[in-house]
C-alpha cells in the first residue's frame, strides 16, 4: 500500500489542504514583515482566535436553529473574518504602534508577550480543554481505488481549496490593483517618504494587519472544519510553520508565501505518510534552518544588499 500511487495521491491531498492553512497564515507574516520589518509573533494566535470565533459562531447558529449548511458556513465565515479582524487591528494599535521607532528586539519581545497574553486570554475565557465540533460538511467522491484502498476527495476538501483559491485571487487583486495596494507597497519602500506624499501610513499599516487577520481567520475556520477539534494552543505550532512557509517562499513576497505554505503542507503530510508522524515538526524546523542558512532570501524573495 505504502508504495502505491494512490497512497501518494491521498497524502498529497492532505498536504494541499494543510498547505492552504499554512499559506493563508503565511501571507499575514509576509505582509507585516514587508511593511514594518518585524516578525508578528502573535499572528499564530490570531489564527487560533479565528478558529475559536468560528466554533462559537457555529454553536450559536446551531442554538438559533439555523442548520442549512451553506448559509451557516457563509455566516460563520463573515463573523470570523470581521471579529478576528478587530483582534488584528487592536493588536497593532495597542502593542506595535507605540514601538514602531524602537529597536527591533523590543518589538519582537512585545510580539512574544502578545502571543503569550492572547493564548492565556483565550484559555481563561474558554477553558483549557479541547473543543470538538461535529462534522459540518460530510461526504465526497471516490477518485481512485487500489484493491481495498480508496482515495476520496471529500466535499470539505473541495470547499477548502475553492475558498483558498478565491481568497488568494481576491487578495492578489487588492494588492496589485487598488490604491490600498499601492499605498502598501509605497510604505514598504520608504515609510517616511510615503507619509510626505500624503499616504496615511498608520491607516495603511492597520489595514495590513486587518488583511492578515482576515486571511488567518479563514485559515482558523478551515482548521476547525478539517480537524474538527481545536484548543488554545494550536496557534503556536501553526504560527511557526506558517512563518517557516513565509521564509521558504521568500519573506515579503505574497506569491512566495502561498508557494511556501503549499510546500510545507506537502512536506509535512508526505513525511507523516512515509516516515514518522512524531518527527514531522522536526522536519519543518529543519527546513526553516536549512533555508535560512543556504538561501536566506527564500524561493521567490529578492536579495537585499547590505549597505555600509
Amino acid at each position: 500500500m505504502l508504495g502505491t500511487f494512490e497512497y501518494f495521491v491521498d497524502q498529497a491531498i492532505n498536504g494541499v489542504t494543510l498547505g492552504a492553512i499554512y499559506g493563508l497564515v503565511a501571507i499575514g507574516y509576509t505582509l507585516v514583515y514587508g511593511i514594518i520589518g518585524m516578525i508578528n509573533f502573535a499572528h499564530g494566535e490570531i489564527f487560533m482566535i479565528g478558529a475559536f470565533v468560528s466554533i462559537i459562531a457555529f454553536l450559536t447558529l446551531g442554538l438559533l436553529g439555523l442548520t442549512w449548511v451553506p448559509l451557516a458556513l457563509l455566516l460563520v465565515l463573515i463573523a470570523t473574518m470581521m471579529l478576528t479582524a478587530v483582534y488584528g487591528w487592536t493588536l497593532e494599535r495597542v502593542a506595535y504602534r507605540p514601538l514602531r521607532r524602537s529597536p527591533r528586539l523590543a518589538a519582537l519581545i512585545t510580539a512574544i508577550g502578545m502571543s503569550i497574553f492572547l493564548q492565556n486570554y483565550v484559555q481563561l475565557l474558554q477553558g483549557a480543554r479541547n473543543k470538538p465540533l461535529q462534522q459540518v460538511i460530510s461526504g465526497g467522491f471516490e477518485i481512485m481505488r487500489e484493491g481495498d484502498y480508496v482515495v476520496t476527495l471529500s466535499y470539505l476538501q473541495i470547499f477548502i481549496l475553492l475558498l483558498t483559491i478565491v481568497l488568494m485571487v481576491v487578495f492578489t487583486l487588492v494588492i496589485g490593483r487598488t490604491s490600498l495596494g499601492r499605498q502598501q507597497r509605497s510604505c514598504e519602500q520608504d515609510r517616511d517618504m510615503a507619509a510626505l506624499l500624503g499616504v496615511n501610513v498608520d491607516r495603511t499599516i492597520s489595514l495590513t494587519f486587518v488583511m492578515g487577520a482576515v486571511l488567518a481567520s479563514v485559515a482558523g475556520l478551515i482548521f476547525l472544519l478539517n480537524y474538527g477539534v481545536i484548543d488554545f494552543y494550536i496557534g503556536f505550532l501553526a504560527g511557526i510553520k506558517a512563518f517557516t512557509a513565509a521564509v521558504l517562499g521568500g519573506i515579503g513576497s505574497v506569491p512566495g508565501a502561498m508557494l511556501g505554505g503549499l510546500l510545507i503542507g506537502l512536506i509535512e503530510a508526505l513525511w507523516s505518510g512515509y516516515f514518522t508522524v512524531e518527527y514531522k515538526d522536526v522536519a519543518a524546523f529543519s527546513i526553516l534552518i536549512l533555508v535560512l542558512i543556504f538561501r536566506p532570501t527564500g524561493l521567490l524573495g529578492t536579495p537585499d544588499i547590505e549597505k555600509v
Partner: peptide
Amino acid sequence: MLAFGAAMVLIMIWRP
C-alpha cells in the same frame, strides 16, 4: 502567564 505576557508588552512599550 496572562500577566507575564501583558507585563512583557507594557514594559517594552514603557521602557524598551
